[in-house]
């Protein structure tokens, strides 16, 4: 690639039956950039995020991550969906953090983190464990390798989930409302870890309702409404001086 664009969504459409949820999304995210996605519930934020790592198929359009089209192989003017195996291979370099953490409850923290590297990337267990301990320290949970997820608080679980995503050494991490399921006093510890990641130069697309986080960390903020990005720009502009009516209405409700 000549430019440093890492993610390029082109005219992304997605329908569930007759319900058109994404109505032509265009977005470019540069390498190392942090983009926050804002928008009311039901505006299609999660669906868009899930399209980026092909947890959803597309109805129309195309998404590039790096030099590859996600989930499809282009042949002439046709896009053929990849096999499950090929799609799984692409997901190795795209991390995802979920609202409900989705840690594997039957595995310890350490097992959660090394599962992907060992099973998928064929990293040696000893090496994966060493890396996992480093990551745990990075998210402020050193020494918790042996705990089971249910023995941890929500904030701790989400930090383990972030470590699990990082263990795959992804070039991009998608966050879907990572703090929405947390008690208010636990939100800060997760946001702190995410700020740290942003500073380290990781490319992040973050769906969030934390306006403060978006203001402080995001390079750009996109506002979604009805399956479209209606406004996008630096946080100071979109959050400080919104142009679109919907953005104004949304922000006045959130503040």
């Amino acid at each position: 690639m000549t430019t440093n664009v890492l993610v390029r969504a082109e005219n992304v459409h997605k329908s569930f039956g007759l319900n058109e949820v994404l109505k032509g999304i265009n977005l470019e995210v540069n390498s190392g950039e942090v983009v926050c996605l804002l928008g009311a519930s039901g505006s299609g934020k999660s669906t868009f995020l899930r399209c980026i790592n092909h947890l959803e198929t597309l109805s129309n359009g195309r998404i590039w991550v790096g030099d590859k089209v996600v989930g499809y192989r282009q042949d002439g003017n046709r896009l053929f969906e990849l096999s499950d195996k090929e799609a799984a291979r692409q997901r190795r370099s795209i991390g995802m953090v979920f609202q409900r953490f989705n840690l594997f409850p039957h595995m310890t923290v350490l097992e959660n983190i090394i599962e992907g590297p060992v099973l998928v990337n064929k990293v040696k267990p000893a090496e994966a464990k060493r890396h996992a301990s480093e990551l745990l320290a990075r998210v402020g949970l050193e020494g918790r390798e042996g705990s089971y997820p249910r023995q941890l608080s929500g904030g701790q679980q989400q930090r383990v989930a972030i470590a699990r995503a990082l263990a795959m050494k992804p070039e991009l991490i998608l966050f879907d409302e990572p703090t929405s399921a947390l008690d208010p006093e636990l939100v800060g510890e997760v946001l702190d870890v995410m700020k740290d990641l942003a500073k380290s130069g990781l490319t992040m697309i973050v769906v969030t309702h934390e306006i403060g986080f978006a203001k402080e960390v995001a390079d750009r903020v996109a506002f979604m409404h009805g399956g479209e990005i209606v406004e996008i720009g630096p946080p100071a502009e979109v959050l400080g001086n919104p142009q679109h009516e919907r953005t104004k209405a949304f922000l006045s409700r959130v503040f």
Partner: peptide
């Protein structure tokens, strides 16, 4: 989904 997100196939 979490398993797929770390690169596992459906069978894995």
């Amino acid at each position: 989904e979490a398993a797929q997100a770390v690169g596992m196939t459906r069978l894995q």
